[in-house]
Structure formats: structure tokens, C-alpha cells
Design a binder for these strands. Structure first.
Lengths: 209, 209
DNA sequence: ACATGTTGTGTACGACTGTACACATGGACT
DNA sequence: AGTCCATGTGTACAGTCGTACACAACATGT
């Protein structure tokens, strides 16, 4: 058999996944979506769904995989653009926020999934976050920015950083994407959170003369 | 008209709210619950629902109010038990975790609501968290534990503390309530997060000689 | 004692749900 | 060429959904 899939490979499949993201972007919760509703949004007949997914959770899991790609793209861009260490936090948070805006539905789905009803999706998203945190730790190690921290302490710090940024997602949910002022407030606050955390990390274990 | 409600006041109402919590406790997501399902769980006929709530969101909002009471009870207990400042974090986190276990469904509902599909419920929960953070700031001020911080910086710190603790909820969701070891791990990690934040706050704005 | 308002029940209906099945299409293989 | 198989469609059905309506029970104010 061949490598290429036939026809337009996964055309309907993509339509279905996009349909879910569209609905989530409109404010719906993933857990409340039904097969018929999704296929209707995708402009496909309901039975087509089963050609690509066993059920909604299956589709959700494949969305998590795509989410992983989005996160990796974001990480790569961050690594390319963060040149000077003093603006590291501002740059990174800026990139995060702009990615969250550009892929709003994706990140909404991520925020929903963390406390969603499918255990598998929860685990998938948590796993993505752990990977993200460990990559961040590697970067900081490579930049020699945390030499005084043990591996475990650095991991914890990065975990906290990722969590804080992820929590900002629930803030971004609350404001319309066009409300520049509110978005800017969230951006600034997230920066301050990270600064506070890094000040803590800098003084960790050697609490001042 | 009288003060007392008639009969067993709000008997069915309570049964309906408990039913939602029961279903959420079983792993269901609030957004995926229907009126019929809830009334079935409560052992009531579907139409009874409308005697007490206009729709599911209305019920959710009233659950948020009750959640506020739970949080206040927890805060009071924390204030009574936290006597010595050096064990402050451990004590507080311990009380939080034990409350989260005792009212598992309530806190599950809270975690779900943060990224749920009802905007009103989102706002309600966020408002509870803000209140919680401001109370925490007041306590720290009263204990003279953050005199070097401006009001704004103290508020930010407490905001970050509350967020970090709230995020631990999504960890607690993932483990069965009986898995003592995992729960203990989460408790310890949350403590370390808070310690890191407080170290950061202690060195905030006077970054070492 | 009576009228009133609140709470719970039973029935009913139209819309929507998930999914099973038979069938059409067309590219990829021998 | 013929065959296979992944993909998409149409129809169908039993179950569930939200909710409207009429009625029963009963605590209350007069």
C-alpha cells in the first residue's frame, strides 16, 4: 500500500476538527458538543463522523495532538526572538499572548480540557504542559540563567511558570479578543507574575546575607 | 407573609443542587448536564426543576453562591489554626487540600466553571477568587508580614498565590481521592510553589546587595 | 372556613440525539 | 481490465431532550 492517502486526504476530518474549534470559539464547551451538532457545523452528514473518529473523545484527543504542534511552533518562535536576556519575560509573554489570540479556539479548548470530562484529554493536555515546562527548563539551563538551582528546583520553577501562564488563559477567555486594553492588562500582569517567580528563584536556598 | 418558608423549605431545591454536585463528582462536566438528567438523579419529576431554577445556568449561579460559603468556612478555619508564622504555608495548604477532599464535588465544579460555557458562572467564580485573594492580602498586612510591599504588589502576590492553589485543583481532579501518596505529592508541590512565591515577594524591589 | 400562592406530579409533544444499515463514488492496486 | 476499499450520502429508528399545560396537595393569611 502507498504512503499518500487517497483523494484529498482527511478533508472531512479537518472540517470536523475545525468545526469543533469554531463552536468552542463561539463560547460552547467541548463537553456539551454532540456529533450531529459538529457535523452540521462542518457541513457534512452525521454518519460521516464515524469514518474518522470513534466518538467525540477520540476527536478531542486528536485535537490535543494538534495543540501540541501549535505549542511547539510557539516555542520555536519564542526561541528565535528572545535574544537579549533582560527582555526575556516580556518577549515570551508577548509571543504567548499573540499566539493565544491567533489560535484563540485552540487555547480555549486547552483551558476547557484541563477540567473537562474526558480523563484522557485531561492527561493529554497535562502532558503537553509538562513537556513545555521541561523544554523551558532546558532553555534556562542552556542560557546559564539558573546555575545555582538544582535540577529539581529548576523544574519546579518552570512548572510554576507554565501554570501561571496557563491560568492567564482563563483571563483571556473572559475578554473579547478585540479589547486591546484588557488584553494589555493581562499581558502586564502575567509579566509581573513571572518576574516575581524569577526573583523568588534567584534567591531560592540562599535567602539573603 | 411570613419569614419561614413553607413545609421543608427548599427540600427539592437542595436535592437538585446536590444532584448536580453528585454528577460532577462522578466525573461529568457541568456543561454536559441536562435538566432531565439532574432531576432523575435527584429523584424528582423533570417539571419540578422549574419551580426553583429558570435553567441550568441559574442553578450553576446559585451553586457559585454556596461555593462562596464553603470558601469562607475554609478561610475561617485557616485563620483559627494558623498560629505560628513559620508553618503558615504548610498549615494553610493542608487545610485547603483537606477541604478540597471533603467538598470534592464543589471544588470540581469550581475548576470546571473557570473555563465553562456560562459567562456568568465564570465571572462568579473569578469574583470569589478575587475576594479570597484580597482577604489573604488583609491577613498578611495584619500580621505585618509584607510591610515592604506596596498595596499593589501585595495584591499581585496574593493573586498569584490564589491562582497557584486553584491550579492545584486540576491536579487533585486527576487523582482518586483515596490515593494518599499522590495527594501528598500535590500538597508538597503546592507548598513549594507558595514558598517560591513568598521568597520572591520578600526580595521584591530590593534585589539583593 | 375559605381563598391564595407555592410546591410537586403526570401527561404530552415536537425537536433533537446517537448510531445502524444499505448504497454510491472514485482512486489505488493487481 | 477488474477488484478492492476508504470515503461520503440518505434513510431510518428508538431514545432523550426541554418545556408547556392541567391538576393535586397543602401551608398560609384572612
Amino acid at each position: 500500500m502507498s504512503e499518500r492517502k487517497r483523494r484529498k486526504p482527511g478533508e472531512t476530518r479537518d472540517k470536523l476538527m475545525s468545526a469543533v474549534l469554531t463552536l468552542v470559539g463561539k463560547g460552547r464547551h467541548f463537553a456539551s458538543l454532540g456529533i450531529r451538532e459538529v457535523t452540521r457545523q462542518a457541513g457534512v452528514v452525521p454518519t460521516s463522523f464515524y469514518r474518522h473518529f470513534r466518538n467525540m473523545d477520540d476527536l478531542g484527543l486528536q485535537l490535543v495532538d494538534e495543540l501540541g504542534l501549535v505549542l511547539r511552533r510557539m516555542m520555536r518562535e519564542a526561541r528565535e526572538n528572545v535574544l537579549q536576556a533582560d527582555k526575556l519575560i516580556e518577549e515570551s509573554v508577548g509571543i504567548f499572548v499573540s499566539h493565544a489570540q491567533a489560535n484563540r479556539s485552540f487555547f480555549l479548548f486547552m483551558a476547557q480540557g484541563l477540567a473537562g470530562e474526558s480523563r484522557a484529554i485531561q492527561d493529554g493536555i497535562r502532558s503537553e504542559m509538562r513537556y513545555f515546562a521541561s523544554e523551558l527548563a532546558n532553555d534556562l539551563r542552556r542560557l546559564k540563567m539558573a546555575d545555582h538551582l538544582s535540577d529539581g528546583d529548576l523544574d519546579m520553577t518552570c512548572d510554576l511558570v507554565v501554570r501561571s501562564v496557563a491560568f492567564s488563559l482563563t483571563d483571556l477567555i473572559g475578554v473579547s479578543a478585540e479589547d486591546e486594553y484588557q488584553v494589555e492588562q493581562i499581558r502586564k500582569r502575567t509579566c509581573r507574575f513571572l518576574q516575581l517567580i524569577f526573583v523568588g528563584a534567584a534567591h531560592w536556598n540562599n535567602p539573603q546575607p
